Amino acid sequence: MIRVAVIDDEPLARSGVIARLRGEADMRVVEECADGHGLAALRREHVDVAILDVQMPGLGGLEGLAAIPRDERPLAVLLTAHDSFAVRAFELEAVDYLLKPLDDERFGEAMDRVRRKLGGEQRQAMAERFAIRVGTRLSFVDVNAVTWIEADGDYAALHAEGQRHLLRESLHELSRKLDPQRFLRVHRSAIVRVDQVVEMQPRPNRDAVLRLRDGTTLRASRTYIDALMAALHRVA
């Protein structure tokens, strides 16, 4: 069982997170705090992951997290309403970064990342290649050749070495098979291999336009932008 602490100064926000966690059968809320001081008292031996608001009165989430010695610090999933703290989140090795109001699918993805980080899914479960069926012919695409993936109805379209391959699998299912250190959801309809991003151009609404090494341009939505920024700092 994964032990979770929920830290937010807004009671309704805490309730929303806790309600979502009830849908995660392997997770149990063991601590509930209203500020960073409560967070700073937590240790990994009692809590596996802390889901915490970044900005709180008194002691904020990042400051509370930083107050815990690194080798005793639980995993962290950060919540924020507006400001960008991605670089600081990267420094504190946050697992994910969620924008309020929370999106249910995005929250589920963050919990999957927590499971992978804690070893709930074995490394062998990560995809190494994909089987593509065209009529009676079966071909294979190496995961290392994939630069980005887009949703296409009931299919996922793999873009690899200038070719587009259709795989009968949803983008959400596929994201669970990919190494989260290398592949990141940037939009409801797109996953990118992080090391392929060469440029990110922010837009006024906090979305961004990404340019990949092969010249492809993609939209990154504000729901995913801070996690993307943290990931880009990780591979820099």
Rank of each mutant, 00 (worst) to 15 (best):
S84D: 15
F140T: 15
L59R: 13
V49A: 00
R129Q: 15
S175I: 04
I7H: 00
E45M: 04
A208M: 04
E150V: 12
A81Q: 00
C33H: 10
V186K: 02
V146D: 05
R206I: 02
G58M: 08
R123L: 14
Q55L: 08
V114I: 08
F85A: 11
V95T: 13
V49C: 06
A131Y: 00
R113W: 02
A160H: 09
E128L: 08
R137Q: 14
S221V: 06
P57M: 03
H46V: 13
A25Y: 00
L78S: 07
E24H: 10
S84P: 05
A66M: 01
R14N: 10
E150P: 02
Q122W: 07
D154K: 09
G135Y: 02
V235T: 12
I149C: 01
V29K: 02
E121W: 04
R185M: 12
V95G: 04
A236V: 12
V143Y: 01
A190E: 01
I225D: 03
P101G: 08
T216L: 03
H37R: 14
G153E: 06
T80A: 02
M27A: 13
A156Y: 01
L228C: 11
A41V: 04
F85D: 06
H172Q: 13
I149F: 00
R116E: 00
D154G: 01
A25P: 09
L171F: 06
A220S: 14
L65E: 08
R234I: 00
H233W: 04
G38N: 03
